[in-house]
């Protein structure tokens, strides 16, 4: 056990001050101290992506980030994706295209997909499959996840073109 340190982080727009051991993992801080249970734990070895959150504009696996490394960071989780006018288009499209079953991978999946579409707003199916390869799903076989992401990209692009 190490001495506790003061960490400040902004999660979904809200500033939190937490007292944590340096070894504490970000995923545990989020889930246990801040009650943000959308990101899940599937492996704790950075293979499954269930814990994916957005940190300073990049996808990270929160099981492989010490909370100390997140000091001062801007973090977005699945809880922060929807806007005042309801669900994020990815959230809608995952439902529309049956991109989830047990739902355990879903928060990480959608959070990763959200970042992927920022990085590459018009991905091909191949690029989606490659860009999502850090997130495992045991239920869906990915086919409908890919469909949902492609559909979300199309809708976002159409909206942008209209604006």
């Amino acid at each position: 056990m190490g001495k506790k340190m003061q960490v400040s982080l902004t999660v979904n727009g809200e500033v939190h001050e937490v007292l944590a051991e340096p070894r504490e993992l970000l995923i545990h801080t989020l889930r246990e101290k801040l009650g943000i249970t959308g990101p899940h734990i599937g492996c704790e070895t950075s293979h499954c992506g269930a814990c994916t959150v957005d940190m300073n504009g990049r996808s990270v696996k929160a099981c492989t980030v010490f909370v100390a490394q997140a000091d001062g960071a801007e973090i977005t989780t699945i809880e922060g994706l929807g806007g005042p006018d309801g669900l994020h288009v990815l959230q809608r499209m995952f439902r529309e295209h049956h991109g989830l079953q047990c739902g355990y991978c879903t928060p990480g999946m959608i959070t990763r997909a959200h970042r992927l579409l920022q990085e590459n707003p018009q991905p091909t199916e191949e690029e989606v499959r490659f860009g999502m390869a850090g997130n495992l799903c045991r239920c869906t076989g990915y086919q409908n996840i890919v469909k949902a992401i492609m559909a979300a990209a199309a809708e976002m692009n159409a909206k942008e073109a209209a604006e």
């Binding site: 249970t37 959308g38 899940h40 995952f94 439902r95 989830l100 739902g103 928060p107």
Partner: peptide, 20 residues
């Protein structure tokens, strides 16, 4: 369309490890 998905897509599932 699945009724479950409304919760799951928003990170509002309630799995065992979420219980506190």
């Amino acid at each position: 369309k699945r009724v479950e998905d409304v919760r799951f897509t928003q990170g509002k599932g309630n799995y065992v490890d979420d219980i506190k």
